[in-house]
Design a protein around this nucleic acid. Sequence first.
DNA 1: TTGTTGTGCAACTCTACGGTTGCAGATTAC
DNA 2: GTAATCTGCAACCGTAGAGTTGCACAACAA
Lengths: 117, 117
Amino acid sequence: MSAPDRRRTRPEPHVDAVFAALADPTRRRLLDQLSAEGPLTATELAASYPVSRQAVVKHLGALAAAGLLDAERHGREVRYGVVTSRLGGASAWLADVGARWDDRLVALERQLRPPGD
Amino acid sequence: MSAPDRRRTRPEPHVDAVFAALADPTRRRLLDQLSAEGPLTATELAASYPVSRQAVVKHLGALAAAGLLDAERHGREVRYGVVTSRLGGASAWLADVGARWDDRLVALERQLRPPGD
DNA sequence: TTGTTGTGCAACTCTACGGTTGCAGATTAC
DNA sequence: GTAATCTGCAACCGTAGAGTTGCACAACAA
């Protein structure tokens, strides 16, 4: 059948971790802030949030585990910086779903149109 | 300071709901399947999943609440179809974070480069 | 009408996770 | 050296949500 043979961007195991990390608004805000202000430590970040430093540390850990941050140690402090490469995977997944659906719509429209048109 | 005055794509309340909905792998798979096979009912979908129909119904409800699906009733059955417009918001957020970080990197590089270069 | 099938609602369990506090271990400053 | 400060680890609590089951209701088929 005339199924669009668009190759799926499927087996991206990272995508799962990225979306899970991005699900929490606090984590998205952290990513937002880090992308705007550059690498900061957990202690510095915690000052801007209504939660404890430990909570922030956990969120940073989740973001780092998803590959969205990388931690760099300088002496006794650890600065977290954004890594954008993984964002692309999630973005690609979104685009893929959208595109496949658009394909379906086009196919559907073609099917609905009378043959002699 | 020479902060890039890129206008933020900020106050998108939908983005929050979309990411939360996309956080669950089952829901992403549902979206995947619906985008590939077209509108289906909860009962039909449930056959492909290791969970009960009720669980699928809940997921579909979450996706619909986030504006990612729309439910259309025909007689006694309800078919769920993809709505792609909201995906754009999430995608834009990802792109925005990435772009702002890239701006920072450029600014940083410029700052590190010796003035007389 | 009666039987069948699909949907919707409610109550319940269980786990994951966001949050906390407390303390131990490093590292810097004095 | 000692004191101050930052990070890391562990135990604990509470709630949201993913899952279940059971049943009532609506719509189609006979």
